[in-house]
């Protein structure tokens, strides 16, 4: 592993000559970029390749000679893909909105009301954030079953908050902490109630935090796999990642074209939202690992 020895020298990089910078920075960066993005290119190009081009070893595989929409058509009209998309949107939006609302209240209570036991509650939220879904899904499946929620969208809407609420609360606690206490004290003196303080002072100031938490929570629920795989079995109720993985693979014949089209269009919505909120997303991600 060759480690880049010319580390960040912030103000000192002007000392470096252009060719050296090319070799030390742009070349490895280009290699990283190529490896990280190639699977997406491959996904996109496969989605529009006709089968005879996909299953031949001749010619240039990096380009499409006669692009086709067959795979997309198959996806839209011969499978439940549109329904999976709709389920995913529905489940992601509802669970995100619900989790965000619950998290705002919880984070405000822990960080600002400082009720007795608030510290312990904050720690409990952090520990809940560390519980991995792949340890929880078996007993959770049995809870879902007991509640009669098996094979419903509601099962997902209610279980996704188990990882969304701890995450959002943790993130929002950090944002609330950065809002000066004095603002609230002024409002208290002016006779504002706690509810007014929350909605009129704290929340407007925490909008960037709310966006970060919201975007991140939406992506997490869009990408969720193991709960959706376990708690839902009817084809028309599946979410997109599960539908593509379980329903588009038929026997031994892999329809790579429609599989890749399914993967591509399932990734685009999150990539699209992400492109508008990159900064919020990055601050959400870095905030999630901070204390």
């Amino acid at each position: 592993m060759s480690r880049d020895t010319t580390t960040d020298t912030a103000g000192m990089t002007f000392l470096e000559s252009t060719p050296k910078k090319l070799v030390n920075a742009y070349l490895p960066l280009g290699a990283f970029l190529f490896v990280l993005l190639f699977p997406f290119y491959w996904m996109a190009i496969t989605a529009f390749k006709p089968n005879n081009e996909l299953l031949s070893r001749d010619g240039n595989p990096f380009w499409v000679n006669s692009p086709t929409l067959d795979h997309v058509k198959k996806l839209l009209f011969d499978t439940a893909y549109p329904e999976w998309m709709w389920n995913t949107v529905l489940v992601s939006v509802t669970s995100t909105v619900f989790s965000l609302a619950a998290s705002v209240l919880a984070a405000y209570a822990i960080e600002r009301l400082r009720f007795s036991g608030a510290k312990q509650m904050g720690l409990a939220i952090f520990l809940a954030y560390l519980v991995p879904p792949s340890i929880l899904f078996i007993p959770l499946a049995s809870v879902v079953f007991q509640l009669g929620l098996f094979d419903t969208r509601l099962a997902l809407i209610l279980t996704y908050p188990t990882f969304l609420i701890p995450f959002c609360t943790w993130l929002l606690m950090g944002y609330f902490r950065s809002i000066p206490f004095e603002l609230e004290e002024c409002a208290l003196i002016d006779g504002a109630t706690r509810w007014q303080i929350l909605t009129k002072i704290v929340l407007p100031l925490a909008v960037p935090g709310l966006i970060s938490a919201g975007i991140f929570a939406f992506t997490l629920s869009w990408n969720e796999f193991i709960y959706a795989l376990t708690f839902v079995s009817s084809s028309e109720l599946k979410t997109l990642p599960v539908g593509v993985v379980t329903e588009l693979v038929e026997g031994d014949v892999y329809h790579w074209g429609s599989l890749m089209a399914g993967a591509l269009f399932g990734s685009l919505p999150v990539a699209f939202i992400y492109s508008f909120f990159v900064e919020y997303y990055v601050s959400g991600m870095t905030g999630s690992v901070k204390e």
Partner: peptide, 19 residues
């Protein structure tokens, strides 16, 4: 763009790797 692999659904990028 470097964050893209992290934000797209893992199950879907895993299919791309399978291919």
């Amino acid at each position: 763009v470097i964050l893209l692999p992290y934000i797209v659904p893992t199950a879907l990028s895993a299919i791309a790797f399978w291919w």
